[in-house]
């Protein structure tokens, strides 16, 4: 079993303490709510798309450090990306955290590989993935995403 302390690295702790893009957008074009009913993680995500590009993104919620840091880093990385690029990252992030993508191999996740360790902590995978499910739901126009 992996020691979860390996997961709680400086970058995750820092994003948890000072989340980027905190706060919802008043002029959002897309939004969704993400819930992890088992542990109580609950986030709201809002996006403003200009054409096909994520122009602005904001989130809020009550969540554990893994979920909050994942959301913070996600919002930072998808800003300015096209919807297709962002959706590809959703897929890659899911694959990485479920052990289907090698973080050392080619991908577009950048520093998000800091979350690769959750694949060995089955109870925490959902925390890390929740913001990405929520992003996907916001693009798709579904109001809610659940890990269950």
């Amino acid at each position: 079993m992996t020691d979860s302390r390996q997961l709680y690295q400086e970058m995750i702790l820092e994003h948890n303490k000072k989340p980027r893009n905190w706060g919802l957008l008043a002029d959002a074009t897309h939004k969704a709510e993400g819930v992890n009913p088992l542990c109580g993680d609950h986030i709201h995500l809002s996006l403003r798309l200009a054409g096909d590009t994520v122009e602005a993104v904001g989130f809020e919620g009550e969540a554990c450090a893994i979920c909050k840091a994942s959301a913070s880093m996600m919002t930072a990385i998808v800003k300015g990306k096209t919807r297709a690029d962002a959706e590809q990252m959703v897929q890659e992030f899911r694959d990485m955290t479920t052990g289907k993508l090698d973080p050392a191999g080619p991908h577009h996740l950048g520093r998000l590989t800091v979350f690769a360790g959750v694949r060995d902590l089955p109870t925490r995978v959902k925390c890390a993935i929740l913001p990405w499910h929520t992003l996907h739901a916001a693009f798709a126009g579904t109001d809610t995403a659940s890990t269950e």
């Binding site: 302390r5 993680d41 450090a65 902590l121 109870t123 925490r124």
Partner: peptide
């Protein structure tokens, strides 16, 4: 303060301590 219960539960588990976190 400042730590979500889910994080508390995971980190305590590293020390062999089993508690419940959640609702």
């Amino acid at each position: 303060d400042g730590v979500h219960p889910h994080d508390v539960g995971s980190l305590l588990n590293d020390d062999g301590v089993a508690i419940r976190t959640g609702h």
